[in-house]
Design a protein around this nucleic acid. Sequence first.
DNA 1: CAATCTGCGAACATAAACGAACATTTAGAG
DNA 2: CTCTAAATGTTCGTTTATGTTCGCAGATTG
Lengths: 264, 264
Amino acid sequence: MNTENVTTPITIPQSQRHEMIINLIKKEGFVTTEALVQHFKVTPQTIRRDLNELDHQGKITRHHGGAGQANSSIENTHYSERQHHLNAEKNRIAAELVRHIPNNSSLFIDIGTSTEAVARALLNHRNLKVVTNNLHVAAILLSREDFTVIIAGGEVRNRDGGIIGEATRDFIGQFCMDFAITGISGIDMDGNLLDFDYHEVRVAQVMMSNARRTFTIADHSKFGRNAMIRLGHVADIDTLFTDAQPPAPLLEQIRRTNTHIVLC
Amino acid sequence: MNTENVTTPITIPQSQRHEMIINLIKKEGFVTTEALVQHFKVTPQTIRRDLNELDHQGKITRHHGGAGQANSSIENTHYSERQHHLNAEKNRIAAELVRHIPNNSSLFIDIGTSTEAVARALLNHRNLKVVTNNLHVAAILLSREDFTVIIAGGEVRNRDGGIIGEATRDFIGQFCMDFAITGISGIDMDGNLLDFDYHEVRVAQVMMSNARRTFTIADHSKFGRNAMIRLGHVADIDTLFTDAQPPAPLLEQIRRTNTHIVLC
DNA sequence: CAATCTGCGAACATAAACGAACATTTAGAG
DNA sequence: CTCTAAATGTTCGTTTATGTTCGCAGATTG
């Protein structure tokens, strides 16, 4: 059979292989390196490189001997122990972000694990006023007695403690704050801010338009990542906090705007 | 469910085995080392290493001869802060109270440390719908994916995570639930329910009038304790859960009503 | 009490998986 | 066509997972 391979050069390009690996993992839950080697007829080293890259992008989770589904860990233990290697980055970015926020200021804080990292980093500030639709953020900030915490009402998502919906949007719209702290699910090469949930996006938009300055936090896994809903454009935000140089096309887009970018 | 009696010539990677062990323990409650050895066809030493690691991660609890479920997450984690005043009593009363609440029912849960104890006790129920103005209650109940948690919006009190005010009252008024779970600051000898905060009382009143049945929890320190604001009368509630026989005059008052009293 | 059994952990050995560095092939631009 | 950069293959030293052996501690039994 091997001799016939010359007539069938099934040279699968890297990008397509990556996509197939992700789909395989989504379907099977887990694949071994060896299985991928046999499936794609490449060397283990190539598969390892693929898996490392996909893991670095946050799309899968690398294990010894193979890889599994990414971080769908909605499971037990509220973000208490796991050091999802992106967590270190998020904390570093958050630490830098809060240096741009003075005491006595007022903030919107949106849904997202990144914004929760910001909330924790804010605990050393004084006398903040915070409006949030994130239950975890509210719980974190409550420990400071000099903070005023206002939470939006509505149904709380089990997944992440987020509160969204029509009523939430109207509630948020009552306030006008100094800063809006938002996360984002993806930024495409044209500079579009993208997210997965329509209602979540609507709330974020209200926060951004009702804040004097908008700070957005996005780790490197967000660059080039696609999502369905358009939240806005990098031009709409004041400062983008990230941990790695964005890809060239995106960087070019940002340079054309007045948006600052802070590498941490 | 596929049958487990598979003869697997392929070796199961560590990460997969760990996941399977967790699921097994979740289903069975407890597994012996020997059972895992036979199931995965590995040596006891490997299983011990697995169990030790998972225990270290807090996902299971190691025992002699095997491992069992981890002590249900919430219990140990973020309740180092709370006041421990009469905590044992409150938990005992809460445990009894939840026995009167069926699965699939809908509840209001009010502000108070007693009601937080109820929330924790409810974690073994299924499929509840809860409307609350207590941030801690919402955070506790979020860990159950089959619960629907709805939180009122507004300023959050640093003191106890309570949310009160006009808007809160209106928000609560939108709902009509099976049960209202409320605490109380004091009950005088005439059977008046008393509290300290006017806004808090108004919210509790709405909950009680919009619920089909009202359960009130009051430990013995509440009997004869005076407070400024009248919330209502024992006649307004359906069942009073407490840990000690009320004083005779109060008991007499209660006997004159249709209110049940449950001693725990 | 001693003898024995059982589960446990430490220490070591081995095979598989891994990552880094370098070589080779392939794809695309000039 | 050549040239270059990216992708892939190859080699080798290192790390990780697992098995194996042995000694220890607590429980049971004679």
